[in-house]
Simulated scan of single mutants.
Amino acid sequence: MELSLHRLRMLRELHRRGTVTAAAAALNYTASAVSQQLAQLERDVGSKLFERLGRRVQLTEAGEVLTEHAEEILRSVERAANALENTKGGVVARLTAGVWASVASGLLPRALTTLATDHPGVEVRTRELAPEDTAGAVRDGALDFSFVIEYSDYPMPWDPALTKVVIAVERLHAAVPTGALPGAPVSLADLADQRWILAGPRSHFGRAVRLACQRSGFEPKISHEVGEQATALAMVAAGLGVTLVSDLGLSLRPDGVEVVPLTEPVMRTVSIAYRTSSATRPSLHLVIDAVRAAAAEQGLGAASPLP
């Protein structure tokens, strides 16, 4: 019997997520592709591994046994890959990173250009995810590392299986239609009567901004709820309302948007998260060094030593 690591990862995700659709989304596949691969895994082992219960699935006894061993096998493969990387004279590795728009446009180009020049054997591929999903994808093995954020008004719970290294510290600024607010800086309270363009309350950004406004004594009047910062800024440029934008998000600013500093700073940290079991990978630390240098060149550096 030959077991495919690829299919074992799918079985592990099915166990964690409870549905084929959720497992497929976590692995960036279609549900039909995951179903086909799991069916092949059942043929490989000669046993039924799961049963459908409505929209959810339940592992059989054989499925539970194989999933338990899959966890050990996949951890062993990761340890072996880490050990091999440490034996090479020059670092050669391919890493997959979780990013979101402002990091991808405002920080990564400079960092990856430097990395390609100094360490051409290290290749970084990216997957754009919602900031709320990146850490979970690292924990589950779908990514090697990801960028994560934490706001001064909204601290995040942390998974002890992950290590977090701060690489940048950003301010949030008011983004308003050009000429809408003469004079600067402004307080959040000065924006209480404005129409707001903001991400939903379940997003880290949307929740953090709502809390900051509430602490300033008002509930923002949200006219447009959008998830993407670039979309929000385009709507600001069209005169549809105001929003907040981070330092890295300024790279997405279109014409017609004026950036105004806040009198009471709202801060956020940008970190790189990776599995603690990957802490000895040289390639990972080379990437962290390159990203930190790029952040420092933009005045966003954070003095946080590598673990």
Rank of each mutant, 00 (worst) to 15 (best):
Met1His: 14
Arg9Asp: 06
Glu13Thr: 04
His15Arg: 12
His15Thr: 09
Arg17His: 10
Thr21Ile: 08
Ala24Val: 02
Ala25Lys: 13
Tyr29Trp: 10
Thr30Pro: 01
Thr30Tyr: 04
Ser32Gln: 11
Gln36Ser: 10
Gln36His: 11
Gln37Ile: 06
Ala39Asp: 09
Ala39Gln: 14
Arg43Ile: 06
Val45Ile: 12
Gly46Asp: 06
Ser47Met: 12
Lys48Asp: 06
Phe50Met: 02
Leu53Gln: 13
Arg56Glu: 10
Arg56Ile: 05
Val57Cys: 00
Leu59Tyr: 02
Thr60Glu: 00
Glu61Gly: 01
Gly63Asn: 00
Gly63Thr: 00
His69Tyr: 13
Glu71Ser: 07
Leu74Asp: 07
Leu74Pro: 03
Val77Gly: 04
Val77Gln: 11
Ala81Lys: 09
Asn82Gln: 12
Asn82Ala: 15
Ala83Arg: 15
Lys88Arg: 15
Gly89Cys: 08
Val91Ser: 07
Ala93Ile: 01
Ala97Thr: 07
Trp100Asp: 09
Gly106Val: 03
Gly106Asp: 06
Leu107Trp: 05
Pro109Glu: 05
Arg110Ser: 13
His119Trp: 08
Pro120Leu: 06
Val124Arg: 04
Val124Pro: 02
Arg127Glu: 11
Leu129Pro: 00
Pro131Met: 06
Pro131Ile: 02
Pro131Thr: 00
Glu132Pro: 04
Thr134Met: 08
Thr134Gly: 12
Ala135Gly: 08
Gly136His: 08
Val138Gly: 05
Arg139Gln: 14
Asp140Gly: 10
Leu143Pro: 02
Ser146Arg: 03
Phe147Met: 09
Val148Met: 05
Ile149Ser: 11
Ile149Thr: 15
Asp153Gly: 09
Tyr154Val: 10
Pro157Gln: 12
Pro157Glu: 11
Trp158Asn: 11
Ala161Glu: 15
Val166Phe: 08
Ala168Ile: 10
Arg171Tyr: 09
Arg171Asn: 12
Ala174Glu: 06
Ala175Asp: 00
Gly179Pro: 04
Leu181Phe: 10
Pro182Arg: 10
Pro182Phe: 06
Val186Ala: 07
Leu191Arg: 04
Asp193Met: 02
Gln194Pro: 01
Trp196Asn: 01
Trp196Ala: 01
Pro201Gly: 08
Arg207Trp: 09
Leu211Gln: 12
Gln214Tyr: 11
Ser216Thr: 01
Phe218Lys: 02
Ile222Gly: 01
Ser223Met: 10
His224Pro: 00
Leu233Glu: 01
Ala234Val: 02
Gly241Asn: 05
Gly241Lys: 03
Thr243Cys: 13
Thr243Ile: 05
Val245Lys: 01
Val245Gln: 02
Ser246Pro: 05
Leu250Phe: 06
Arg253Gln: 15
Asp255Glu: 15
Val259Cys: 07
Val260Arg: 13
Pro261Leu: 13
Pro265Trp: 12
Val266Asn: 00
Met267His: 14
Met267Tyr: 15
Ile272Pro: 03
Tyr274Val: 08
Thr276Asn: 14
Ala279His: 15
Leu284Gly: 00
Leu286Gln: 15
Ile288Ala: 15
Ala290Met: 07
Ala295Thr: 04
Ala302Gln: 07
Ala303Phe: 14
Ser304Val: 15
